[in-house]
Amino acid sequence: MTFDEMRARVATGQGFIAALDQSGGSTPKALKGYGIEEGAWTTEDEMFGLIHAMRQRIIESPCFGNGKVIGAILFEKTMDGSSGGKPVPHRLAERGIVPFLKVDKGLEDERDGAQLMKPNPGLEDMCNRARELGVFGTKMRSVIKSANPAGIKEAVAQQFAEGSRILSCGLVPILEPEYDITAADRAEGEKIMLAAIEEGLDALPDGQQVMLKLSIPKEAGLYTGLTSHPKVLRVVALSGGYSTDEACEHLAKNPGMIASFSRGLLQDLRHQQSDEEFDGTLSSAIDQIHAASVA
């Protein structure tokens, strides 16, 4: 796929984006969920080798390339690896799947009810290398934990500032100010966040577009206006700790949003499964998430 073909696939594709970007601190938890305990590796390289093998198994599964997965978010080491004998971004594009790269460096300590992203001085270098490898866009995450206007506005402003750096490198950023779904004041806070996002979009130069990755809102349909905004290429939803069933049920009530699930996609996959069992389990999850995304 060319870059323009990828853009069209993301903008109009009837499917969802798989999140395969567990990194550093979240990798042991992801492997445990996959049925591999911490004692199975002794070095970080061995740990990342195990998670890469899991991702290869997903990417090469027949159902992963059936057209229902339109994009995949990768961890840097996954981007640099191979699958099916080819660099991962090339292999994904070959299967009709648009590659994205996780680019944030983790979270700062909570301040004003939000965790901002850590400084990322090497962002442009990473983006330029990703573009050369065939990556279309990026993803970066901050977390909002309460309806504190100062924290929400700062988190959203940082997302747009970093997004501008990414746009200058020729990639399309996914901005992800995740709102903690367990927050008691989420309904109020999400409205504050929506206003901050709209302000950030208004400030974007004409002709530029970003993507948004947001928690499924407490108030169904809250983000409908964003899904048709001329400066938004696509609005995707994170599962945010919901089970697959819960996430799909809530997502289906929000027309225009499509899924970008990690836990919701991977929760029932196990290292010990035969290829037939693995492919069947993954296929069922893909079908369910796809149905919620196009509802």
Rank of each mutant, 00 (worst) to 15 (best):
262 S>Q: 08
16 F>I: 02
27 T>P: 01
197 I>W: 05
149 P>G: 06
204 L>E: 05
189 G>K: 11
193 M>P: 12
67 G>R: 07
268 D>L: 05
61 S>Y: 02
87 P>L: 04
116 L>G: 15
21 D>N: 12
263 R>G: 15
34 Y>V: 04
170 G>K: 06
99 P>H: 05
205 P>F: 06
205 P>L: 07
55 R>I: 00
215 S>F: 03
53 A>V: 00
48 F>Q: 12
69 V>D: 10
130 A>L: 03
61 S>K: 06
117 M>P: 05
29 K>V: 07
236 V>L: 11
142 S>T: 11
295 A>Y: 13
130 A>G: 02
159 Q>C: 15
220 A>L: 02
182 T>I: 01
210 V>R: 10
38 E>W: 00
272 Q>G: 12
168 S>P: 01
294 V>N: 10
266 L>Y: 05
68 K>I: 08
206 D>M: 11
174 I>T: 05
171 L>F: 11
15 G>F: 02
5 E>R: 09
46 E>T: 02
25 G>D: 14
252 A>K: 14
238 L>W: 01
143 V>C: 06
205 P>N: 06
135 V>N: 06
151 G>F: 11
242 Y>D: 06
265 L>Q: 08
188 E>D: 14
96 G>W: 06
33 G>R: 11
65 G>D: 12
200 G>S: 07
162 E>F: 14
227 T>M: 05
126 M>N: 06
112 D>G: 10
136 F>G: 01
73 I>P: 06
279 D>M: 04
23 S>E: 12
144 I>G: 09
114 A>E: 11
27 T>K: 04
219 E>R: 00
168 S>H: 08
169 C>P: 03
44 E>D: 12
168 S>F: 02
92 L>Q: 05
86 K>Y: 07
250 H>Q: 14
198 E>M: 07
258 I>L: 13
271 H>I: 00
270 R>F: 01
77 K>V: 09
293 S>Y: 08
131 R>H: 07
112 D>K: 15
17 I>C: 13
108 E>D: 13
198 E>Q: 14
109 D>Q: 14
21 D>A: 08
70 I>Q: 08
45 D>V: 09
264 G>A: 12
145 K>L: 13
265 L>V: 03
89 P>W: 04
237 A>H: 02
289 I>G: 03
128 N>S: 08
175 L>E: 03
178 E>T: 04
246 E>K: 06
132 E>C: 00
121 P>R: 08
114 A>W: 13
231 K>H: 10
131 R>L: 12
227 T>K: 03
133 L>K: 15
159 Q>F: 09
4 D>E: 15
221 G>L: 04
115 Q>P: 04
257 M>T: 04
125 D>I: 10
129 R>H: 10
165 R>S: 13
97 I>H: 03
67 G>N: 06
227 T>I: 01
272 Q>N: 12
109 D>A: 15
238 L>R: 02
294 V>W: 01
141 R>G: 05
62 P>W: 12
143 V>Q: 08
144 I>N: 09
2 T>D: 14
205 P>M: 09
244 T>L: 15
75 F>P: 00
140 M>D: 06
227 T>G: 05
210 V>K: 07
